[in-house]
Structures are given as C-alpha cells and as structure tokens.
C-alpha cells in the first residue's frame, strides 16, 4: 500500500494549441529579444542624432514617404491572414490554415516589394555617413527577420498543403503568428524613424 497521493493526468490533452504551450513561450522570448534589440537601436539613433548639429547629414535626400506609407496597408492587412491561420490551427481546419497563410504571404510579399523599391531609391548607403549606417541597419535587420519569417511561413504553408500537418505543425502555425504580429508592430516605429525621423528632428545649418 502507499500513502503517497497521486495525480492522474492521463485524461489531459497531449498537446494544446494556445499560449499555455512552452513553445508559445519560446516564441514570446524571441519577440522580447528582438524587441530589446530594436529598442536599443532606436535609442542609439536618437542619441547619435542629438549629437549632430546638422541632420540629416548634408547630401542625404529626404526619403520618400508615399510608398512606405502605402506599404503599411498590405502589411497591417497581412495580420488578418495570420490571425485566420492561427485560429484555424486551433480548430484543425486545413482550409483555414492554407487560406490564412496564403493571404499572409501574398500581402507580405507585396509589402516587401514596395519596401525594396523604396530602398533602392535611397541616394546614400551604409558607408556614406552615420545616417546611412542607421537607416541601412534598420532596414537590413528588419528585412532579414521579415524574409526569414516569410520563408518559415512558406514552409508551414507547404506542410499544410501536402497534408503533413500534425499537432506540432499546427502549433507552429499558431505560435508563428506572434512573430508576425511583432514584425509588423515593430515596423511602425522603425517606419517613423526612417521616413519621418529626418523631418521631425531636422536641423539645418
């Protein structure tokens, strides 16, 4: 006989597609890390800017604002696709996941194309001056993450389409949504800094 109490967990679910899963926490940590990095980069941008008498440095064009502003539309809308997919993952709806992820990828690709067109039109690069270094760092880091997450989303879509989509993969679809929301959300302050920053904090000689 025993006098030890037992807790039987056999009846509990073998997985849970929600924020209770450790994987969700792992992705959340990733968001924190990235967020901390961008926050420090933004702080460093303003620190540097406040030391300069003239901003933006002579010769740098003011970035165009039309295309980057329009870019926000597909970018924010792409979150709807993400949400659709992550809810469908909970309900194990293959069609919903496929639709949501496709919408997400399509809109994100449009936004990426707009960003690259605008990026291409800058008349300075990372070596030109200190503003160039920062603008390219913001664009480079964010776009790198953006493309990486897009690639991962494409892999998830592929898994959904070919039907190799068990609970782990559905959990992947669900937690991947946090990273996408984050990438969209952090883009907004970066957008303000890159495209409006030189105007807001402009000083001429």
């Amino acid at each position: 006989m025993t006098d030890v109490q037992t807790i039987d967990v056999g009846h509990l679910k073998a997985y849970d597609i929600s924020n209770q899963d450790p994987l969700w926490w792992g992705q959340f940590m990733f968001v924190f890390i990235e967020g901390a990095m961008f926050a420090i980069l933004i702080a460093a941008y303003f620190y540097t800017r406040l030391r300069m008498d003239v901003w933006p440095p002579p010769g740098d064009q003011f970035p165009h604002k039309l295309l980057p502003t329009l870019e926000l539309i597909p970018l924010i809308l792409s979150c709807a696709g993400t949400y659709w997919a992550s809810e469908a993952a909970k309900k194990n709806s293959r069609g919903g996941m496929a639709g949501g992820l496709t919408l997400n990828i399509a809109l994100a690709a449009v936004a990426l194309w707009m960003r690259i067109v605008e990026w291409h039109s800058l008349n300075f690069n990372w070596m030109t001056d200190i503003q160039g270094s920062y603008v390219w760092a913001f664009l480079g880091l964010h776009t790198f993450d953006y493309i990486a997450d897009l690639a991962f989303t494409a892999v998830l879509l592929l898994l959904v389409l070919i039907g190799r989509c068990g609970p782990k993969q559905r959990l992947g679809v669900h937690v991947d949504s946090i990273v996408w929301y984050f990438l969209v959300a952090i883009w907004i302050p970066i957008y303000v800094v890159i495209y409006w920053g030189p105007i807001i904090v402009e000083t001429q000689q």
């Binding site: 460093a44 620190y47 540097t48 030391r51 300069m52 440095p57 990372w126 070596m127 001056d129 200190i130 160039g132 270094s133 920062y134 390219w136 760092a137």
Partner: peptide, 23 residues
C-alpha cells in the same frame, strides 16, 4: 560592421560616438 563593411556607428571621424559604444 564598422571594421568590415565601413559603417560609421562608432567612428568619431564621421559623427559616430565612441561613448555610445560604451553606453
């Protein structure tokens, strides 16, 4: 990146600040 690709983040000659690195 200052060393390998020629950015100016902490290069005092181009408006970068060595103290920023320290911070």
């Amino acid at each position: 990146s200052d060393r390998t690709v020629g950015t100016h983040f902490v290069n005092p000659a181009e408006g970068g600040d060595p103290l920023l690195y320290q911070h």
